[in-house]
């Protein structure tokens, strides 16, 4: 609840269309993994796009380290340390893995620093080093997702946001993705993620946010969210959560 990242009362929609997000909020704690859950169309992805600056805010407040950052462009967000991986993974399919990583540091404009940071990434994700000169589009879904997530780290951001990193991946790979998420959080980076598989997402997160109809219904430590019987019934498919 410090003045790290505050998201309050945000209202947003596409074009002149109806508001998809209506007075949504969430609490962000530095260095923790936050998982946004909710049914289809609840506004989860929209929330991330709004925070990332891909969508103009109609109302609301986003402050980061004491600065009002609502309404900034995506690249301005990036410069302030907030990175985003959208659902489509946003890779450049006909560029190599190394080139994709270089694009991750596009705003650095410093070749030497960039090369050494890419080396660091390769040390943390050896699979990417193996594939360094392969076109991103030819890798498996899991590898592509790894690349997309790793690419955000080039800029050493404070906050990274992943929109459904598990989308279209096999269960075993999904677990690997969550391990990567944990790995990233362990280095002190704050993670926000949207997850369709709510139980899975909450289990790997510290903080859970339930979104429906564009509003924040509930938020709290993810164990509490998982244990809440109302949420279990409505959003976790009535699964028994031990």
């Amino acid at each position: 609840m410090s003045d790290f990242l505050t998201i309050k009362g945000i209202t947003a929609g596409y074009g002149d269309g109806p508001a998809i997000l209506d007075d949504a909020k969430m609490t962000v704690q530095e260095g923790k993994v936050h998982c946004i859950i909710g049914p289809n169309g609840a506004g989860k992805s929209t929330m991330m796009k709004a925070i990332a600056g891909m969508l103009p805010l109609r109302k609301g407040e986003i402050t980061f380290k004491g600065e009002n950052i609502a309404g900034l462009r995506p690249d301005q967000m990036l410069r302030r340390g907030i990175a985003f991986v959208p659902q489509e993974r946003a890779l450049f399919p006909k560029m190599t893995v190394r080139e994709n990583l270089r694009m991750g540091g596009y705003i650095l404009n410093d070749d030497k620093a960039l090369s050494s940071r890419i080396d660091e990434i390769f040390d943390r994700f050896p699979i990417l080093r193996e594939r360094a000169d392969q076109h991103a589009g030819t890798m498996s879904g899991g590898q592509q997702q790894t690349l997309a997530m790793a690419r955000t780290l080039i800029l050493r951001p404070d906050v990274v946001m992943f929109d459904e990193p598990s989308l279209g991946l096999a269960p075993k790979i999904v677990r690997e993705m969550f391990q990567i998420v944990r790995l990233i959080a362990d280095t002190g980076v704050t993670v926000l993620l949207v997850e369709q598989n709510a139980v899975m997402g909450l289990r790997h997160a510290d903080w859970g946010v339930v979104l429906d109809l564009g509003r924040t219904l509930f938020e709290g430590p993810s164990a509490e969210v998982l244990a809440d019987p109302r949420i279990q019934e409505l959003y976790l498919g009535g699964q028994k959560v031990a």
Binding site: G13, G17, S45
Partner: peptide, 14 residues
């Protein structure tokens, strides 16, 4: 999904 929403909005407006 976003496009569909945008479109629905546009259709409603129209």
């Amino acid at each position: 999904m976003s496009d569909a929403m945008q479109e629905t909005g546009a259709v409603l407006e129209a």
